[in-house]
Nucleic acid binder design. Structure first.
Lengths: 120, 120
DNA sequence: GACAATACCTAGCAGTTCTAGGTATAGTGC
DNA sequence: GCACTATACCTAGAACTGCTAGGTATTGTC
């Protein structure tokens, strides 16, 4: 998977995951791998700076928590803000513009070579 | 439109345009604006280095031509190669993976705010 | 006591795109 | 003949940014 595509999808992907409910870094990492069938292969070093940026931009708020079994490792949970939801909606719109343009082109090409398509 | 998204879509967009038939820089620029309803706003300085890279990678071949009215300005026409078609197919597949992941997330969100959706 | 999994963090390198500036021809209006 | 716009292409290197690589620490388990 090329870097630029990974980079461009990172923010909407994480905001989208947070829109499902608050979550913490390590779990987000697993969720991304799951969503992309392991094709994205993020490292934690890629994710944490992104989470910090979302926080800096006001798109998410962070809070330290300890899971119920009080002995466990503390986690930093991120919760999406209203501003973050708006940003996500805008980015979603932009993706639609791009994918629309690409689909106009691919429309007349041979059928897609993808393994699993339209799984929604 | 954020830079990273523009950058990530540039190569598949141009390869897609070339898959319609050979074309030259200035006209590709117009086609991109048309396809994106003017939202992409590429400059020629962005396009030419990309075309050169496609050529260097063997995804396209270039040839100077003068349009039929022999007085006109010469143009450098690019034609997609077989290798370029394969690259396009692969990138198309990758986009499908990403958009699939995003759609999984957006699936349960509020309806898309996009102006014109699914125009295919 | 050693290893793996969980969990988080950051400096600064590395890699790239795009900005800004350049060249040149054809056509149009005056 | 002159000025302006549209057409048409090119490139160096600044500017930006993401990621690599390395670091800390706890819990469980063999």
């Amino acid at each position: 998977m090329p870097k630029d595509l990974v980079a461009a999808s990172a923010t909407p992907l994480v905001l989208g995951i947070l829109s499902e409910g608050e979550n913490y870094g390590y779990a987000i990492l697993k969720r991304v791998n799951q969503l992309s069938s392991g094709e994205l292969e993020w490292t934690d070093g890629m994710l944490y700076p992104l989470l910090h940026r979302l926080e800096r931009l006001g798109y998410a708020e962070a809070a330290w928590k300890v899971p119920s079994g009080s002995r466990a490792r503390r986690r930093k949970y991120y919760r999406i803000t209203e501003s973050g939801r708006q940003a996500l909606a805008e980015q979603r719109r932009q993706w639609t513009v791009i994918t629309g343009a690409l689909q106009d082109l691919w429309h007349e090409m041979s059928p897609p070579p993808s393994p699993a398509l339209l799984k929604g």
